[in-house]
């Protein structure tokens, strides 16, 4: 565990807490893509199949449980909670996420480290995580205005990806046998998806104005 990895995990956790807080405090999920949240829930469920078979550390197992539980809690709120559910704007959240799931699964069947049940699902979760933010970014783009908490949610998610890349560079330099191309290449693709959002986030931050994405 290095400082970049820890910072990455913490910003990841923070992003989810910011989102839960926003939904809980306002009893509204406006501006939040349910499809992205469902994709993340699938990502965590598919990746942490090893929760009961491989023990890495108490920290690892604890975080896995937290990520699974919090992502399911968000999906539950958006689908079941009577007040939150009503605020969900289906018209704006139109991204066809089933195609992402199918494409990522096919890719995982072809590109994986080992052809075993867990490894294929692990690769699938890595690919799906890389593109899971797309429905959210498209929703933000379509609605134009981004409220502060939704902006912060995406900002922290992007920061998490940035820290993970620094973590991989650090590990590559310090651990002689560190090679994991699937995770690293997917991670770089995922981080690149945030570049555009970050650009506008920093401009609005610099000008102290509300975040607005161009149409």
């Amino acid at each position: 565990m290095n400082i970049f990895r820890l910072a990455g995990d913490m910003t990841h956790l923070l992003s989810i807490i910011v989102l839960l807080l926003k939904i809980y405090a306002t009893k509204s999920c406006s501006g939040v893509s349910r499809k992205t949240q469902e994709l993340y829930a699938i990502v965590f469920l598919a990746r942490y199949l090893d929760l009961f078979t491989d023990f890495i550390s108490v920290y690892n197992s604890f975080m896995k449980v937290v990520f699974i539980a919090s992502s399911l809690a968000i999906v539950w709120c958006m689908r079941v909670h009577p007040m939150v559910r009503r605020s969900y704007d289906k018209e704006l959240d139109t991204f066809r996420h089933y195609f992402l799931i199918a494409a990522c699964f096919l890719l995982a069947l072809v590109l994986h480290e080992k052809f075993t049940f867990q490894e294929v699902f692990w690769a699938f979760s890595i690919y799906l995580e890389a593109v899971a933010i797309l429905p959210q970014l498209v929703l933000l783009q379509r609605s134009g205005n981004v409220d502060n908490l939704t902006g912060q949610y995406v900002f922290f998610l992007g920061a998490y990806r940035g820290f993970y890349i620094l973590n991989w560079i650090y590990r590559y330099l310090t651990e002689p046998r560190f090679t994991r191309w699937i995770a690293c290449v997917s991670g770089v693709v995922q981080t690149a998806l945030y570049a555009d959002f970050f650009y506008y986030y920093f401009i609005s931050w610099k000008n102290n104005s509300k975040l607005k994405l161009p149409a």
Binding site: R5, D54, I56, Y164
Partner: peptide, 10 residues
């Protein structure tokens, strides 16, 4: 354990 398939990250 085999380094390649060890997933120690989240």
């Amino acid at each position: 354990a085999d380094v390649i398939t060890e997933h120690d990250e989240l």
